[in-house]
Amino acid sequence: MNEFVATVVRGLGNGSIYALLALGFVIVYKSMRVISFAQPAFMMAGALLVSYLVVSMNFFLAVLVALLLVALLGAGVERLALRPMIGKPVFVIAIITLGVDIVIRTVVNSFIGLDIRQMGDPWGLGQVDVLGVKIDQRHLATLVTTLVVVAALFAFYRWSRTGLAMRAASSDQEVALAQGVSVGRVFSLSWALAAALAGLAGVFLSTGIGLEQNLWLTALKALPVIILGGLDSLGGAVVAGLSIGVVEALVGSYGGDLHPVFGGDFFLVVPYLLMLLVLLVRPYGLFGTREVERI
C-alpha cells in the first residue's frame, strides 16, 4: 500500500510538470488557435538560466529572474516570428514555432554541453516521511507550486481586467478588437505566460536529476495531455496532466511484468496510447469545445 501511495505521489509530481507545460500550450492555443511547438525550447531555456544564475544568487531568486527572462524571450519570439503571420493558416504558424524551437534549443544545448548541469535546488533527491510513506521532496515541491500557480492563473483569468481581455480575444478576436481590447498585447502576454510556465516546468523537471540535453522530449508529453484535456480547456490541461502523470507512474511501477514484448520503458509511450484511445471516442478531447461548422 505504501509503495502504491508513493507511486501515486511520484505520478502527481511528474503530472504537475505536465500540467504546467500543458497550460502553456493551452494559453497560446486559446489566444492564437495554434499549438506552439516552441514550448520545449522555453522549458530548456528556463532550466538553463536557473542553472547559470544559481551560482551567484539564491535559488528562488534565480528562478524568478530566469522566468522573467524566459517570458521576455517568449514575447520577443512572438513579436518577431509570429506577429507577421497573423491570418495565415494555423498549420504554417505551427511549423514556424517548430523552426523557433530548433533554433533556440540548439543555442541552449550548446550552453548545456554534454554534461549534466546541477540546478542547485534545495531539495535534491532528499525524501520526507509522510505517515510512513517516503516521498521525494522535489515531487511535493512541484505539486504544491503547481497548485499555487494554477490557482493564481485561474484567478487571473477569472477576475482581472487583462484576464477578461484575454478571454474576450480568445472567443472572438474581431469583436474583442472592436471593444477596445489590444489583441496584439494579448498575444504577447500569452506567449510570455506560456514561456514562463514552460520555464517553471523545466526548472522542476531538472531539480534533483539535473539538466541535460535529452530532457526536452518530456515537454512533448504535454501534447497528449492537451489533446486529452481538449486544446482550449485550462481545467482540462490540469486534470489530464495530473492523470497522465499518475497513469504513467503506475505503469512504470507495475507494468514492467505485464509482458516482455512491451519492454521495460513501456510507460514512456503510455501517454500517446491513452491519447489515441480517447480520441477514438471523443475527437475534441475530454473537455474541449466542439467546433461549430459553417460553410
Binding site: A94, F266, L268, V269
Partner: peptide, 21 residues
C-alpha cells in the same frame, strides 16, 4: 479522417513515438 487540423498533427506525432518504441 475524424480529426481536423492540429489535433491530427499531434496524433500523427504520437504515432512516431509509438512506432519508435
Amino acid at each position: 479522417a475524424r480529426l481536423r487540423g492540429l489535433y491530427l498533427a499531434v496524433v500523427t506525432l504520437g504515432l512516431v513515438f509509438i512506432g519508435e518504441h
